[in-house]
Amino acid sequence: MTNENMLINDVKKPMNILKMSDRVNPHFGKLWNTKYPYVIAKGGRGSFKSSVISLWLVLAMKQQTQEQHHANIICTRENQA
């Protein structure tokens, strides 16, 4: 089998599609679908607030860059002392 045949065979394999919104805690569904530029997320420790927001920011940046826009993200997080 040549390298060219290997590439063609690899392309024909079905792709697994991972929908990120299915991975989000249902408690944060409104946060995931919001159009507001500023969000205050409430929840206890270990509720995945930071994880949900970071996923959303990455996907939002990906969408903007695919539309040929420049994108910058600034994220602040307050730690409890």
Rank of each mutant, 00 (worst) to 15 (best):
R23E: 07
R77P: 02
L7N: 12
I73M: 08
A81H: 06
A81G: 09
K13L: 13
K30L: 13
I53S: 03
V58P: 01
N25D: 15
M20C: 09
N3W: 08
V58Y: 11
Y36E: 14
V39K: 01
S21W: 01
K42R: 12
N79K: 15
S54R: 12
R45H: 10
L18V: 13
K19W: 04
S54N: 14
Y36A: 10
P14M: 02
T76S: 15
P26Y: 04
C75N: 12
L55D: 14
E78C: 09
K12M: 11
I40H: 06
M20K: 05
H27L: 05
A60M: 05
K49H: 03
E4R: 09
V39D: 03
F28V: 01
I74V: 15
K13Y: 00
N72K: 09
A60C: 07
L59N: 15
M1R: 11
Q66C: 11
E78I: 08
N5L: 11
M20A: 15
T76R: 03
H70S: 13
N79V: 15
T65G: 00
I74N: 10
V58K: 10
K19D: 11
V52Q: 00
C75E: 03
M15A: 09
I73T: 10
M1T: 12
N25V: 07
L7T: 10
I8F: 02
S47F: 03
H69T: 04
N5K: 12
A71L: 03
K19C: 10
L31P: 01
N79T: 15
N33G: 05
I40D: 06
L59K: 14
F28K: 00
N5S: 10
K13G: 01
I73P: 02
Q80V: 05
M15L: 11
D22P: 01
M1Q: 07
V11A: 11
K42W: 02
H69S: 07
I74P: 00
D10W: 05
V11W: 05
V39T: 13
A71C: 15
G43W: 00
Y36K: 09
I40S: 10
W56N: 09
L55S: 15
S51E: 11
Q80N: 13
Y36V: 06
S54H: 14
N5Q: 11
F28E: 00
H70Y: 15
A81V: 04
L57H: 09
I74R: 06
P14E: 03
K42S: 15
N79W: 07
I53R: 02
H70V: 10
I40C: 07
Q64I: 04
T34W: 00
G46E: 01
K35D: 10
T2K: 05
G29D: 15
V24N: 01
H27I: 06
I53W: 02
V24A: 03
K35L: 08
P26T: 07
